[in-house]
């Protein structure tokens, strides 16, 4: 059984009379330690997919397994535990807590889980050793995203989920962030799922999942993995 398994997942948003079928019979697998890139047009259902996988949202139908455990069967409390111990999230808009310093933002996450990585080390690892005592407002977007990644990594999660981590960043910074993610995966064997609408980035992935209006269009195993530094877009 694969590390991550989606089988016939359906997600229907119901707002009023309108039903939006965000995911239709989505099935795919992701292996452990893989870097998986999910691509698709805006509104295709990428975020929905990721949120469900990350335990932030529930599915309407189907099953999801992570490391042999059925995530889709979790109750609220279990989902919280799941998010707490198994998942690291990186958002497009960083979502740092503005009132906490970079270090504290990492600490607040690391304090939660069972065997966290030392926050200072993690922050140093993302190259923010000097800026640890800065508040988010005092950091640039890239730096903030690094803090966000550090926050996710410090929890030492089984799965790192990143929803358009470079969406709000300029090209160079985005590249650096992706590099960071690739390195993290490579060094610690962490499974990383990155959402992007930029198809060029698929080159860095082990597995590429194309989503098209709620359905899994195709799943491609990348034979020729390109380091981030070499990708141009």
């Amino acid at each position: 059984m694969a590390f991550i398994e989606f089988s016939h997942v359906n997600k229907i948003y119901q707002s009023g009379d309108v039903k939006i079928h965000a995911l239709k019979d989505a099935s795919f697998e992701v292996g452990q330690g893989e870097i998986c890139v999910i691509v698709g047009q805006s509104g295709a259902g990428k975020t929905t997919l990721l949120n469900i996988l990350g335990g932030m949202d529930t599915l309407t139908d189907g099953r999801i397994f992570l490391d042999g455990v059925e995530v889709s069967a979790f109750r609220k409390k279990q989902l919280a535990n799941y998010r707490r111990n198994d998942i690291g999230f990186v958002f497009q808009f960083y979502n740092l807590i503005p009132n906490l310093t970079a270090l504290e933002n990492v600490e607040i996450a690391s304090q939660l889980c069972k065997d966290p990585l030392p926050p200072v080390e993690v922050l140093s690892g993302v190259g923010l050793h000097e800026r640890m005592q800065n508040f988010p407002a005092q950091l640039s977007g890239g730096e903030q995203q690094r803090v966000a990644i550090a926050r996710a990594l410090a929890k030492n999660p089984k799965l790192l989920l990143c929803d358009e981590p470079t969406g709000a960043l300029d090209y160079q910074t985005g590249k650096a962030i992706l590099k960071l993610l690739q390195d993290a995966s490579r060094h610690s064997g962490m499974t990383v799922i990155i959402i992007t609408h930029n198809s060029a980035l698929t080159a860095m992935a082990d597995r590429i999942i194309r989503v098209k209006s709620g359905t899994i269009d195709e799943v491609i195993l990348n034979e020729k993995i390109v380091p981030v530094e070499e990708i141009e877009w």
Binding site: A80, Y82, F89
Partner: peptide
């Protein structure tokens, strides 16, 4: 809301 949502995502119990 965002802050709280973030915390929830980080795995804060209710």
């Amino acid at each position: 809301v965002r802050e709280i949502a973030t915390l929830k995502v980080l795995g804060f119990y209710p």
